[in-house]
Design a protein around this nucleic acid. Structure first.
Lengths: 318, 318
DNA sequence: GCACTAATGCTCAGTCTGAGTATTAGTGGT
DNA sequence: ACCACTAATACTCAGACTGAGCATTAGTGC
């Protein structure tokens, strides 16, 4: 019936918002089959991908997106979702998905309740190096990773990605780490995709995985988004698209730390930030944390110019 | 006849090689309709985009690609090629193209003659700030750009992109500059796309454009590739994928300068490069330039590790 | 008024960077 | 063999930036 093979272009959006607690992502789907908001691209109706993304996110969730950026186009056979599960017409020969990241800014409790949001570290516990829990997640994974790293090439990749042997931890290498875990079979998606390969797969050995899975390759898309966002913080003033209009420097630091999953040196963070000219103080103060009241800042006009630089991340010692 | 709209996924590759003269890109097409190597993705036969790219470039041109990386997926209606011109079946409702950059390494005269290569500055004369000609190209464009920049937002974009008013020139903002020129109607593609919009367009007023056009949105894809490559030089040891196996530091510097279109400070370039540990000296010397013979270097083992850092670019004063 | 908690200020040494000046080892001609 | 010329390589110096840590201050709650 179909002479030419059919391709469906799916759009997936990683919508990030900051609540008091940290970065959260918008999810959709039903229990057991949670994924990112997903819509299919209408080749006739939609003029550009970006408009299509804004469109379906708003119509599905009611949120208007601010900053939107294309991430990557994923097309590997065998890693996409079983098409029927996504509610797509099943006569497609291939589903290709274009991933987008969108920043929904700082949201309040009301908006938060209007959608299903989740702390992104639920899916990547090892990416949070602020907490003991995150460091423990890595300790759990390392033995298996080392066992998998039988070649020097693999060993070197593991060492670089996870900051072993004196290599430093690079917060933006989220995707590299996830791909290693996938290849090593340490995330649930790997097992699932392998099972799909074998026609009638025997249920694989039970094992507990670290981090919750997502439908299709959505966890990979989320990893790409996290990495992109973390990298971009350093060279574009993009944090301000997630921060509230007025904030104390400590609040801003908490936000950056939550996004990057690392602890920063407080005094040096202030210093570089004030020097950068990205923020300016409003006159107002903010007293409520039981210590000296803090100055409230806003992003400066220069931080809005195209080409303004990002933040430096002065890491705190372990 | 077609109930579901048809999408064709095109793959475009920016294949970069370095010859003695500088960075060159592989072209295809016939005079008057020059473009990048272009193939369409077979949803059934090809397992991944990357494999498909390697495949069609090799079969069309005989080159085996080394480093390959996805750039961006372009899907704007109105900027793609007239479908028939690209030899595609014309029953598609939409052509979406996934752009890739590939590095073909350092090639010799024989390989060079086997394909159609062109200095990439033919398409972006304003990107070459090593030569007087490049600087003059900008002077030609600026009056028109300024005339177009009627709002402060536009003025700020122009100033940032072209390094006006004390802003520094960012060699990797190739796409931003191209998009500005496109929006301002200063590149031929803009005129062409506008004419397409109006059903029977009267031939627009003759005007000389700076830089040669390419078919479809291929010049935009090339701009994306140049920008990505220039940015990546700074944080990944990617130059070595374009340099010959053994090189003098001056040769390496010339290559970097050619890629980035800027002049570097020689002594400081050497210093940071030697400190970086990315190169190591072979014992051999290279004497043939009429001065003191130069040491021949190779990339070091550490430069091959995933996660090795890139080069710093110590700019020379004007 | 006192203890406590954060915010804010300030200092110091080591490193990195931009810019120069100085020296050296070849080449080619006389 | 010596000289002029060219490009490679070596060294120096000051200012800017960074990592760390100590010191001071302005609120809050007994």
């Amino acid at each position: 019936m179909n002479a030419t093979p059919r391709v469906i272009i799916g759009l997936s959006a990683v919508v990030v918002a900051a609540t008091g607690k940290g970065p959260e992502v918008l999810l959709s789907g039903s229990p057991g089959a949670i994924g990112l908001p997903f819509g299919s691209f209408d080749p006739i109706g939609h003029r550009t991908f970006e408009l299509a993304v804004r469109d379906f996110v708003t119509s599905q969730t009611g949120f208007a997106l601010g900053y939107v950026e294309q991430l990557y186009t994923f097309g590997d056979k065998g890693r996409e979702a079983p098409v029927a599960d996504m509610g797509q017409s099943s006569d497609a020969d291939r589903v290709v998905s274009v991933g987008y990241i969108a920043l929904a800014g700082s949201i309040d409790e009301g908006q938060r309740r209007a959608g299903v949001w989740a702390d992104w570290y639920r899916f990547f516990p090892w990416e949070d190096r602020r907490s003991e829990a995150g460091l423990r997640a890595i300790d759990l994974l390392l033995p298996d990773l080392k066992a998998w790293a039988t070649t020097t090439e693999r060993q070197s990749r593991v060492a670089m990605a996870f900051g072993l042997h004196g290599q430093s931890w690079q917060e933006s290498q989220v995707l590299d780490r996830f791909e290693l875990l996938y290849e090593a079979g340490l995330v649930q998606e790997a097992q699932r995709d392998r099972a799909k390969g074998q026609a009638s797969a025997a249920p694989a050995a039970e094992r507990t995985f670290v981090g919750e899975p997502l439908v299709s390759d959505h966890r990979r898309i989320l990893a790409t988004a996290m990495g992109r966002l973390r990298a971009k913080i350093r060279y574009r003033p993009i944090v301000f698209d997630l921060a509230p209009a007025r904030f104390t420097l400590s609040e801003l630091q908490d936000l950056v730390e939550a996004l990057c999953g690392v602890k920063l040196h407080k005094q040096n963070f202030r210093r570089t930030l004030e020097r950068s000219g990205l923020v300016e103080s409003t006159g107002a103060m903010h007293a409520e944390t039981g210590g000296r009241p803090a100055m409230l800042f806003t992003r400066s006009a220069t931080s809005r110019q195209a080409g303004a630089s990002g933040l430096s991340l002065p890491l705190a010692k372990r």
